[in-house]
Simulated assay, not measured.
Amino acid sequence: MTSKAPDPWVRLSPFYPHGGLPVPYFDGVTSQSVEGVWQTLKVFEHADIDLGKLEVTTMKGLKRTVRRYGPVQGHRAGPQSEQLLPYETARRRIYLPTYRWMLEHRASDLVERLRGIPDVVLLDYTTNGDVTDPRSPLSHAALIQLYLEGRWPEEN
């Protein structure tokens, strides 16, 4: 479920450049990837949003780090908004809807293939499937499992 996965499974990675993914809070704006949305809307102590991350198609150069920009202040809730969403709220209102949209509109064929496999093991770099646990990034394998089981986390 990572950017290092073989074809076709790499398409389930949030870094994969599907194109045309709607950006929450930005009417009519789209991103190449889920990760592009997440990184674009992140606001740091020394850097605001970066719309350039929406256009990245290489699965590289997407990350924006605290080492370079200072502590994360939140995720911006719109291009003109002063509101910064705290981490869990941003996960629920930005990340989850964007990843779910990608599963439903850009990788639905793979989701259906997974539904047809009786026993499947999904591998990821992390195992955190708890949206409320900020100690580690969300596991996409865990999110896919929740989606397949009809237990997708609450988005609002």
Score class of each variant (00 low, 15 high):
Glu88Phe: 05
Ala77Val: 09
Pro86His: 12
Leu54Cys: 08
Arg106Leu: 06
Gly61Glu: 08
Gln83Trp: 13
Leu110Asn: 04
Ser136His: 02
Leu84Cys: 11
Gln80Val: 12
Val72Phe: 01
Tyr99Lys: 12
Ala90Trp: 01
Pro8Cys: 14
Gly20Ile: 07
Gly150Val: 09
Val10Met: 13
Asp130Tyr: 02
Arg91Leu: 15
Gly36Cys: 01
Ala142Ile: 02
Gly61Trp: 10
Glu45Cys: 10
Val131Leu: 07
Glu112Trp: 04
Asn128His: 04
Leu138Trp: 00
Glu88Ile: 15
Arg100His: 14
Gly116Ile: 06
Glu55Leu: 08
Ile117His: 13
His75Pro: 05
Asp7Arg: 14
Lys53His: 12
His75Met: 15
Gly19Leu: 05
Leu138Asn: 00
Val56Gly: 02
Ser3His: 12
Thr57Gln: 07
Ala107Val: 06
Thr89Lys: 09
Gly150Asp: 10
Leu96Cys: 10
Leu84Pro: 00
Leu84Phe: 05
Asp27Phe: 08
Gly116Trp: 05
Phe44Trp: 11
Leu54Glu: 00
Leu146Arg: 07
Ile144Asn: 00
Glu88Ser: 11
Lys53Glu: 07
Lys53Thr: 13
Leu96Met: 14
Gln145Lys: 06
Arg93Leu: 13
Gln39Asn: 08
Arg135Ala: 05
Gly116Asp: 10
Arg92Val: 06
Leu110Arg: 02
His140Met: 04
Pro24Thr: 07
Ser33Tyr: 01
Trp152Asn: 05
Pro134Val: 07
Thr2Gly: 15
Val56Trp: 02
Ala47Ile: 13
Tyr16Cys: 02
